[in-house]
Amino acid sequence: MFKTRLRKVYLILFVIILLVIVTTLIDNQKHLYGNDIESIKRVITSLEGYENEWVEVLEIMDRGDNRIVGLLLNNDPGYIIFQKNSEGNYKWITIQKSTGYTIDSYVVPLAQENSSEELLYMIVTNWENEVANLKLTINETVIEREFQPGEPSVTLIEFPEVDNESYEIHKEFFDVNGQELKF
């Protein structure tokens, strides 16, 4: 009789421990966050359409509660944005990739605490990039940036302040000899 009770106690303990382990594993699989390079890669490859992507994180930039990650997906330029939640973890918000380009630019909207939105201009280059210089005109403001051809990079540019929240963007790319490149 004592052995039977002991077996029941052991069985109940085993079931409780098993439930705790299974619940923990399931809970960890549901919540992927972009807290570090490896977890960022896991988030990306867990997304539909990105399961088989080779991910190279180029740069991680934190701005307020936003985390912007410039990256290459199978050597194609792209980015992913995370937002910090109340527990301090970075939750995936959006991802974008430009297939077949060696350089691409994005207008990146970031949510702010006061419900406004900050706009950044982001340029991502890959290993095959031939661009050495960029001349970017946003409305009347001219911004120039240099790049190292053949080196992946991420560049963030803040949008200039305007009165009417309207932007006109013009970009020109140049090679190391100063010749304009057309894309």
Rank of each mutant, 00 (worst) to 15 (best):
M1P: 13
M1Y: 14
R7S: 15
R7W: 11
K8L: 10
V9H: 03
Y10R: 12
Y10Q: 13
Y10T: 01
L11E: 04
L11A: 09
L13D: 08
V15W: 15
V15R: 00
I16A: 12
I17C: 15
L18Q: 10
L18G: 04
L18P: 11
V20Y: 09
T23N: 06
D27Y: 12
Q29C: 06
K30F: 05
H31I: 00
L32Q: 12
Y33N: 04
Y33Q: 05
N35R: 00
I37R: 12
S39F: 13
S39L: 14
R42E: 14
V43L: 06
S46E: 14
S46P: 05
S46C: 01
L47E: 07
L47P: 03
G49S: 04
Y50F: 12
E51C: 03
E51P: 05
N52T: 13
N52Q: 09
E56G: 00
L58Y: 14
E59H: 01
E59T: 08
M61I: 15
D62A: 03
G70Y: 09
L72Q: 08
N74L: 02
N74Y: 13
N74Q: 08
N75I: 04
D76L: 01
Y79A: 03
I81N: 06
Q83L: 07
Q83C: 02
N85G: 04
S86R: 09
S86T: 15
S86P: 09
E87M: 10
E87Y: 08
N89R: 09
W92M: 14
I95N: 10
S98I: 15
S98C: 05
S98V: 12
T99E: 13
I103K: 04
D104E: 03
D104K: 09
S105L: 14
P109V: 03
L110K: 00
A111M: 12
A111C: 12
Q112K: 13
N114V: 04
E117D: 02
E117Y: 13
E118Y: 15
L119R: 06
L120F: 07
Y121C: 10
M122G: 05
M122E: 13
I123Q: 11
V124R: 12
T125H: 05
T125M: 14
V131R: 07
L136Y: 15
I138Y: 07
I138S: 04
I138L: 15
N139A: 06
N139I: 01
E140Q: 09
T141D: 05
I143D: 01
E144I: 00
E144T: 10
Q148S: 14
P149F: 09
P149N: 03
G150P: 00
V154Q: 08
L156E: 02
E158I: 13
E158N: 12
F159V: 01
P160Y: 12
P160Q: 06
P160I: 07
N164S: 07
K171R: 05
E172P: 00
E172M: 06
E172F: 00
F173G: 07
F173R: 08
D175P: 10
V176A: 10
G178N: 07
E180I: 01
L181R: 08
L181N: 15
K182N: 11
